[in-house]
């Protein structure tokens, strides 16, 4: 027979856990709205940037000797993978799913005898990877102090990476982040950023066939300037998407937790009442049989 006091305590503790998860859900919902707005308001910029690069790179033939961000290098040996995760846990499968995508890629590259380098943005991804791939992780970028993501944060990261590229530390670069689709769905995304993958559809090309641009100063000078900027924009986008996804994932995880806690409380309360009744019945039987014996 379980102790009634213990049961009571247990119900109390589940209740307070439920309160915490409910509060976390509410906080995540508020943060999600803000993160979503930030992600949306940055979209015109990244779209315009893409549009610009497409206009410039069309018909542009780089001299093959150059090491540039548009076409990269002929070399394909060292791959840099940038992983965007959160700084905090309690957000369901958010971090593990995107890390799994990254891990598949790493295994794939190792099978092809490529060298892999990893940059972790956010502590959680590093925590998952450090046991298995610690010798590949070249840098961990701490975002704990960052309350709301600014363009400058993205710039700090991209400046580092671009410098690494021109120092010849890697040949190709991909970023891994959770793309925000909705509160309940975040899609782990892999995107190659160096060299740039330009997705141009046919009709688009036809429409712009006759457009011809003057460049000032020159095509290559503008490209030299715009490509690092474009990389920054990609990083910025990944950061914002990842932040929005994190809050979305946390919100649904906490919603689940609150619901589970509610179920648990219901079950425990039922069990508590049954036990209480059993105790009363037992007492009654004892009294009655005691009275009969007299």
């Amino acid at each position: 027979m379980p102790n009634l006091d213990d049961l009571k305590k247990r119900i109390g503790s589940v209740k307070s856990t439920e309160k915490i998860t409910k509060a976390m859900k509410m906080v995540a919902a508020a943060k999600l709205r803000r993160a979503q707005e930030a992600a949306e308001s940055s979209r015109p910029y990244s779209d315009s940037m893409k549009d610009l690069i497409e206009s410039i790179s069309k018909g542009y033939k780089p001299s093959s000797t150059d090491r540039n961000l548009l076409t990269g290098d002929e070399k394909d040996q060292i791959h840099l993978l940038i992983l965007f995760t959160s700084e905090r846990g309690l957000c369901g499968g958010f971090n593990s799913i995107v890390t799994r995508t990254l891990r598949d890629k790493i295994e794939n590259l190792i099978d092809q005898n490529k060298t892999v380098k990893i940059v972790c943005v956010g502590k959680k991804g590093y925590d998952i990877l450090k046991r298995q791939y610690s010798e590949m992780i070249t840098e961990v970028i701490d975002m704990r102090a960052v309350k709301s993501i600014t363009y400058q944060d993205a710039k700090n990261i991209s400046d580092k990476v671009v410098k690494m590229f021109f120092d010849g530390e890697f040949d190709k670069c991909s970023i891994f982040y959770n793309e925000f689709k909705s509160v309940i769905s975040q899609i782990p995304t892999e995107q190659q950023v160096i060299p740039i993958e330009i997705i141009s559809n046919e009709s688009d090309q036809e429409r712009k066939e006759d457009s011809f641009f003057e460049f000032e100063p020159g095509e290559s000078e503008i490209l030299d300037e715009i490509l690092p900027l474009n990389f920054t924009v990609q990083v910025f986008k990944a950061l914002l998407e990842s932040a929005a996804s994190e809050q979305g994932a946390r919100m649904s995880a906490m919603d689940n937790a609150s619901r589970n806690a509610g179920d648990m409380i219901d079950n425990l309360t039922l069990f508590y009442n049954r036990s209480r009744q059993a105790v009363i019945t037992k007492e009654l039987i004892e009294i009655i049989s005691g009275a009969e014996a007299v």
Partner: peptide, 10 residues
């Protein structure tokens, strides 16, 4: 002005 030639510049 309106109808300027196509141009890209930094």
């Amino acid at each position: 002005l309106a109808n300027h030639a196509n141009i890209i510049t930094s």
